[in-house]
């Protein structure tokens, strides 16, 4: 699976939606790992900061044929002409061609939000407020030193837990290894998922499970037609779920198999 530019790795993720139970552990793990700010009101989803966000979809059928499915949505780390990277005026977000990871430099971001406008996945969120750490509550005690908390007025997004890559690399270098083993670097959500619905690895490495999984007939990506080339893939055996992932003109969607339940 030759993808991306140049050499190096192309880290990607495969999320099995049949396994995903919508429990939200990935969201919580992500928030805890990356020091996401929590405000007293997180119910305004248009202003709530999430790097990994769950979308709930239903098949729209009447009772008792209704079905719910969840789309966990991290940053897609778009590979082709990354929509957000190309528009950022201050070079505060970059795609690293050696890893395929789209970074975000908070101290450089000026908060123009053009990247938010350009991203169709809503993977980027803006710090509308100062980080909420009231005096005397002591919430800041759980903050991890690996990721710096963000200031007001900047955009943030999922970085595929880039600090974990650094951590893994440091460990490898200490053992005088240049290459990482599969599983040595995985994101916090991958690690946390109790259903093991998330697989993470190097899409360019044929040995890695992800490069096998993306070849599955059930594999698809979100809004594939736009040509953003996300490095996050999904799996679902259900046609109605796969159909939810992109816009289709009438007759355009090709069901894989007639899904039969029960």
């Amino acid at each position: 699976m030759e993808k991306g530019h140049g050499h190096g790795n192309s880290y990607g993720m495969v999320i099995d939606l049949d396994k995903c139970t919508g429990c939200g552990t990935c969201m919580v793990a992500c928030a805890a790992e990356n020091n996401l700010a929590v405000r007293p009101d997180e119910s305004d989803k248009q202003r709530s900061i999430t790097w990994m966000r769950l979308y709930k979809v239903t098949n729209g059928k009447e009772f008792p044929h209704t079905e719910v499915c969840y789309f966990p949505r991290p940053c897609m780390q778009c590979d082709h002409h990354t929509p957000c990277v190309s528009v950022c005026p201050a070079t505060a977000t970059k795609m690293d061609y050696h890893t395929g990871i789209v970074s975000q430099i908070y101290t450089r971001c000026i908060g123009c939000r053009y990247c938010i406008a350009a991203c169709p996945y809503h993977a980027r969120t803006f710090n509308w407020w100062d980080a909420y750490f009231p005096k005397g509550k002591g919430l800041e005690r759980y903050l991890s030193p690996e990721v710096s908390p963000r200031m007001r007025g900047v955009v943030e997004k999922c970085t595929f837990c880039h600090h974990r890559l650094m951590r893994a690399k440091n460990n490898a270098y200490a053992e005088e290894r240049r290459e990482l083993e599969e599983g040595e670097y995985i994101t916090a959500c991958t690690e946390a998922c109790p259903a093991q619905a998330i697989t993470f690895g190097d899409l360019k490495n044929p040995e890695h499970k992800v490069s096998e999984l993306v070849k599955s007939r059930y594999a698809f990506r979100l809004l594939e037609k736009l040509g953003t080339e996300p490095k996050v893939y999904y799996l679902s055996t259900k046609d109605w779920v796969r159909r939810m992932a992109d816009n289709y003109l009438p007759g355009e969607f090709k069901p894989i198999a007639k899904v039969k339940l029960g």
């Binding site: 939200g24 919580v28 928030a31 996401l36 929590v38 997180e42 119910s43 999430t50």
Partner: peptide, 8 residues
Amino acid sequence: FLNKALFD
């Protein structure tokens, strides 16, 4: 953190 995972 779980409030983030609740739907609106």
